[in-house]
Amino acid sequence: MTRMGFFTDTSICIGCKACEVACKEWNDVPDDGLNFLGTSYDNTGALGADTWRHVAFVERPRGGSAPPSSPPVNGQDAGSSPAADALDTGSAGVRWLMSSDVCKHCTHAACLDVCPTGALFRTEFDTVVVQQDVCNGCGYCVPACPFGVIDKRESDGRVWKCTLCYDRLKSDMTPACAKACPTQSIQFGPLDELRDRAAGRLGVLREAGVSEAHLYGADDNDGVGGFGAFFLLLDAPEVYGLPPDPVVTTRDLPRMWRAAAGAALALVGAVAAACARPR
């Protein structure tokens, strides 16, 4: 079946958090604690067992220093004219970036790879889903995820994350977050189409002078083989709390097994050596 996914275009995110609420209403996700975090308008903090969509709020100085891993910044904000920037003394001189984060539904998903029970599985839509009737709460997927997405709900014992609304997909419906998103910052569809659309959008933004715009997770050759849910970002990934170059841990698994085999042999050797010595 066609691979389905999300394209989250953060350049049109208004930070309304409809995605967070719509997700919770549909998936019956409990609240994640009522804590005033003092981190701009973000009082959710991060994705987790009880937050499957998380809107990050980043306040950055206009034309602020860009980290080396991001494309060069020419000091312009999305869509603002150069003249506007030159006259910026009256404005807040700040950019407010908002981005709705979600499970990436990786092509090479570490959580899925390491799950010992098959609770995590790849669906017919090429999404990665936890089967709550199977999960025994071993927790292995939690540290395996390079994005810190999946987590255990302590009150429940199992792990939870975005299912890309597996049940809705099976009923030919749009995932709750994408459906609610007022500005269609969150777009759902066949991944190929989304990538085309994203490339087009990137072109438009670049042409408009938003040179810092870039796609995150749209490359099949990245460390996780591309994301099923990818992003258009206006700053370096780490600014939004995303890893700049995530790699699926199981990529190194063969090397690990080899090292383990070596170590096992060494153990056998040592034991043999210890026992072989004449008494």
Partner: peptide, 21 residues
């Protein structure tokens, strides 16, 4: 909130989840 320092990412929040073991 506003910082030029991006080495610690998003408000110094962990990128990864700590193990639950």
């Amino acid at each position: 909130p506003v910082t030029d320092e991006t080495a610690t990412g998003y408000y110094g929040n962990p990128v990864l989840k700590a193990p639950v073991w």
